[in-house]
Structures are given as C-alpha cells and as structure tokens.
C-alpha cells in the first residue's frame, strides 16, 4: 500500500481559548502500516499536539476512543480508515457535554450505570468453593458481560438524549439484565422495582440505534425486552 492522504473535518473546542466550537479542515499523510482511524488520529496529533481525544488499548476492549464518525458512533481503533468516506467528519459523542474537542463529560452516563447496582448480590454466606453454575446458565450471560462501557449506544439513543437524567439508557439496562440473568444473583425483585418507572426502563421505544452502533455486536434492545418480559411475568 502506498502513502495516502486522508482529509478530515473535526469538531474542535478548547474552552480555554475558543469562544465557541468550530469544525476544522485538516489532512494527514498516512504510513502504509496505518490501518485504523485511531492510527490516523495519532498521526494527526504528531502534527498538531492540541488535538484532544481519549485512547488507550487500541484493540476495542477498553472503550476509551468512542466518537461520532461520519454521523455514526463507533470506536476509532476498530474503524478501518480506508472504509470511510472523505472528508471524515469526527464529532464528540452526541448528547453529553463536551469538555474539549472529542472528549465528552461521561458523568451522566456512569451515573445511570451505577444506578442499577452493577454488582452481584448474594446474601448467603460465601461457600468455601465457587458457587456452581451450569454451562447453560453461564451462557445466559454471553452478549451481556462483554460490554466495554464506551457509551456508543446510550449516546446514539434519542430517549437518552431527551432524558439522560431519568432514562437509564441501553448500556445501563444491558448491565441490569446481566445481573438479572445471573443465576447466582438474589436481588431480582429489588432490581425490577428499581426499573419499574415510566422513565428508567420504559422510555426505550425500540428504535434500536444501540444495536446498530455497538462495536462489540451486543444487543441492548433484546436485553431491555427481556427485562420487560420479567416485569410482565411477575405482574401476573
């Protein structure tokens, strides 16, 4: 592969010096080994060290480099640069306050995650050995526990945009179901009570943007549906 140039339009805002945000046109020449959007952004930073974004593992497991890429949320480290239409338009994740450039304030997102009590509750005295769980029961957690908390899903969800303080959002609800589905957890009743509310669970209108953008291929909408089923089942 020969050297190639990529053109970007990037949302820039530094509250220390900018009165308001603006879109910057900028290009960068890539090395043949640069394959992912993150490689290009690192290249850009070498040219302009004020370009700010979060990044860490560069392999799609830490969830740091979520951003809005040509109108769709995704991880920079898992996005092939050559697959993107140019100019590549990069914006911070929608719906959360911007701290600087592509860095958003994720307080509200984590607040919702914490609100579902994201930890196993089991009040029996811990046995000497592991609590047993059949492979089939363990399989129920697949597609749930792999969430990397990147926030691509919640920040693509119109219901979360409107009510980020009241609607738990797809990431938090996926986590809620991860514990509801765990045979070792004993807090089912309280977990469902916690979500039985016109906003916390029921603002999901199955728009399914979350499923569309999840970089790990997870399906929060299905998990939300299963929580709703559990609500119905306990009501009858």
């Amino acid at each position: 592969m020969s050297k190639r140039t990529v053109h970007f339009k990037i949302y820039r805002y530094d509250p220390d010096k900018d009165e308001k945000p603006y879109m910057q046109d900028i290009s960068v020449e890539l090395e043949p080994s640069d394959k992912k959007l993150l490689d290009a952004l690192v290249r850009l930073r070498a040219k302009d060290d004020s370009m700010s974004f979060r990044r860490s593992c560069r392999e799609g497991v830490c969830g740091s480099d979520a951003m809005n890429i040509n109108g769709k949320n995704g991880l920079a480290c898992l996005t092939d640069i050559d697959s993107l239409e140019q100019p590549v338009t990069l914006r911070p994740l929608p719906g959360l306050p911007v701290i600087r450039d592509l860095i958003v304030d994720m307080t509200q997102f984590f607040k919702q995650y914490h609100s579902i009590k994201p930890y196993l509750v089991n009040n029996d005295p811990p046995p000497e050995r592991e609590r047993l769980q059949s492979p089939e029961d363990r399989e129920e957690l697949n597609g749930l526990y792999e969430c990397i908390l990147c926030a691509c899903c919640s920040t693509s969800c119109p219901s979360f945009w409107w009510n980020p303080d009241k609607f738990v959002g797809p990431a938090g609800l996926l986590a809620a179901y991860r514990f509801l589905a765990d045979t070792r957890d004993q807090d089912t009743g309280a977990r469902l009570d916690n979500l039985e509310d016109p906003y916390r669970l029921f603002r999901c209108h199955t728009i399914m943007n979350c499923v569309d953008v999840c970089p790990k291929g997870l399906n929060p909408t299905r998990a939300i549906g299963k929580i709703k089923d559990m609500m119905v089942r306990r009501a009858i």
């Binding site: 196993l120 492979p135 070792r184």
Partner: peptide, 8 residues
Amino acid sequence: HYGMPFDR
C-alpha cells in the same frame, strides 16, 4: 463470589 463470569 464477587460475580466474575467464569466459563464452567
């Protein structure tokens, strides 16, 4: 016991 989803 903390809830880690080990394979079984």
